[in-house]
């Protein structure tokens, strides 16, 4: 799908917080109403800017968690203990507050059901956020593109969107979800219990002969490992898109 060029700089927009959702103990989804928001695509991100009373500004990038929905923008934010922005967003922000954001940003790490498939998604920790926007877009679409997700978290308590993924997995026969918990597993755990490796990818993902579109998102080390293993399994590197997130000061 060729897009048309939208020219100009990104302007900062003022959005209002309309809901806050606790995802885990240290992760919240912030639901924003942003007048004049250009419709975004699953996989894109926004910049959020905070301004202190003395004029000091700090900004961070966050992936958009919801599929395109008018002026509604949802970001899912993980608390970085010694961070500068996330402690405010997680601990202080209240419904009715206003924050500044600009976007949507990104045209490479983007997927809509119109792009087709099959699709292989691999998430490490909060790398699941942009992939969830893709899955939610899939759930709203008439196109029954086959999608597989492998998602890695440290424990069940830190797995975001767990209930929604279970619900979607049982209602969509074109979505398969595999889980691994790397540090702690509940007694009745049925999924994997180790870091993502080549064997796990071979067991849970599309074979290279299906030529899936791959999207891998997570911390840098996770993305490197997964992308290298997918290539070793015969996947075309050009069809595996990656998005790394690092220590941006949170």
């Amino acid at each position: 799908m060729e897009r048309t060029a939208v020219r100009g700089r990104l302007n900062w927009l003022v959005a209002e917080v309309v809901d806050l959702i606790d995802e885990t103990g240290t992760v919240k989804s912030i639901v924003l109403d942003c007048p004049d928001w250009p419709l975004h695509l699953p996989g894109q991100h926004v910049d959020i800017r905070l301004t202190a009373e003395d004029g000091y500004q700090a900004q961070r990038s966050y992936s958009i968690a919801n599929p395109p929905a008018g002026e509604k923008v949802v970001v899912t934010v993980e608390l970085v203990d010694d961070g500068e922005v996330s402690p405010y967003l997680i601990g202080e922000l209240a419904v009715g507050d206003q924050i500044e954001l600009r976007g949507p940003i990104g045209g490479y790490f983007v997927w809509t059901p119109e792009h087709g498939g099959p699709v292989q998604l691999v998430a490490g920790g909060s790398g699941l956020v942009p992939l969830m926007a893709m899955i939610r877009a899939l759930a709203e679409s008439d196109r029954r593109v086959p999608v597989r997700l492998l998602t890695s978290a440290r424990s069940r308590e830190t797995l975001i969107y767990g209930d929604e993924l279970r619900r979607l997995q049982s209602s969509l026969d074109n979505l398969e979800v595999a889980y691994t918990l790397t540090r702690a597993q509940p007694a009745d755990w049925q999924g994997y219990s180790r870091r993502v490796d080549q064997q796990m990818l071979a067991e849970t993902s599309w074979p290279a002969t299906e030529r899936p579109l791959g999207f891998v998102c997570g911390p840098t080390g996770f993305v490197e490992t997964v992308a290298a293993n997918l290539v070793a399994l015969g996947h075309d590197a050009a069809r595996i898109k990656t998005e790394r997130f690092g220590p941006s000061g949170g």
Binding site: A5, R7, L10, D47, S61, R102, I105, G106, E243, G246
Partner: peptide
């Protein structure tokens, strides 16, 4: 990181995604 992280910078520079 990867080029996605500079998406906003590129828009400022080149006027498009």
């Amino acid at each position: 990181l990867d080029g996605n992280a500079l998406g906003a910078l590129f828009i400022d520079l080149f006027g498009q995604e």
